[in-house]
């Protein structure tokens, strides 16, 4: 029996159960990722994506499976972005972060646990992605993404997601993305406040967000306000939805727009940037 025939026979209500994906992987000597690629090719949806179907669709799910997203920083925003992209079914996630988990991360970073203290963030990200979705490849890169290493570390990426926590690192990466022709999905948080915007390839819109071309400070108002649990999770959700739309070629993205959310006043503002 062909793999496609095996998968078609194992589908329940049009969806392939995980146990059958594993059986197919064993019988045909393939990885879970290869089995899912074959399923999409045969017009079959793995059951784990059944609640994506009405929003993403089979064709969109196949596009996400074939996509690669780089997440720069695996802390408050980046950790939640990785969690959501792995559940969404983005086939390759490149996670870049030089740091290990510290106690001050526990209040908001989804990958930070008491057991993970001292563990490199990218290692925790790889374990988490594997636990959620073994059909996703997470490439852990323990490095600080900068303009020098960006061309090699971002090789193959379709979109770059911002999980960084300093303004200078963001501006440097945004500049590298502009030169590499990559969309850069930005979000930043401080206290009750979050902002998000997408810098289109070749644009320098992020420099307009951080201070008029003058030398901006290393950190924003988060230096005084800190970051509670809910703001990075919100910012990450904005990024994940934005990444999904960019990969699927949907309209309504934050290209040329700065979205600002105030969770204290429960207000939302939007400006062209």
């Amino acid at each position: 029996m062909s793999l496609e025939g095996f998968l078609a026979a194992s589908a329940r209500g049009g969806a392939i159960p995980w146990s059958e994906e594993l059986r197919a992987a064993r019988e045909f000597g393939l990885s879970a990722r290869e089995v899912e690629a074959a399923a999409f090719g045969a017009g079959l949806l793995p059951a784990r994506y059944s609640r994506n179907a009405g929003t993403i669709g089979l064709a969109g799910q196949a596009v996400l499976h074939a996509s690669c997203v780089a997440v720069a920083g695996c802390g408050g925003i980046g950790g939640h972005v990785i969690e959501q992209l792995a559940r969404l079914g983005v086939g390759t996630i490149v996670a870049v972060d030089p740091d290990v988990f510290e106690e001050s991360n526990l209040n908001r970073q989804i990958l930070a646990t008491v057991e993970n203290l001292g563990l490199p963030k990218v290692e925790a990200a790889a374990l988490r992605a594997r636990a959620i979705n073994p059909a996703v490849i997470l490439r852990p890169l323990r490095a600080r993404l900068d303009s020098r290493n960006a061309p090699s570390l971002l090789e193959g990426a379709d979109v770059v997601a911002d999980g960084l926590d300093t303004i200078s690192a963001r501006l440097e990466l945004a500049g590298a993305c502009a030169r590499l022709g990559l969309p850069f999905v930005h979000a930043g948080v401080a206290g009750w406040y979050a902002q998000a915007s997408t810098q289109a390839p070749g644009s320098s819109s992020l420099s307009d967000i951080y201070g008029h071309g003058t030398a901006p400070a290393e950190r924003g108002v988060e230096a005084a306000l800190g970051n509670p649990s809910f703001t990075p999770a919100l910012a990450a959700s904005l990024e994940a939805a934005e990444v999904c739309k960019l990969l699927l070629g949907l309209s309504g993205t934050l290209r040329g727009r700065l979205l600002h959310l105030d969770l204290l006043a429960m207000e939302c503002a939007e400006f062209p940037i």
Binding site: Q195, G220, H260, P272
Partner: peptide, 29 residues
């Protein structure tokens, strides 16, 4: 980030009667 009448503006932008000036702090965490 500064907007005058919802358009991104430099600090030396000269204001006019009736303008709306919106000011955002750096949000970088």
């Amino acid at each position: 980030v500064v907007f005058v009448n919802s358009r991104h503006a430099a600090p030396d932008t000269v204001l006019a009667d009736g303008d709306t000036l919106a000011i955002f702090p750096p949000v970088g965490g």
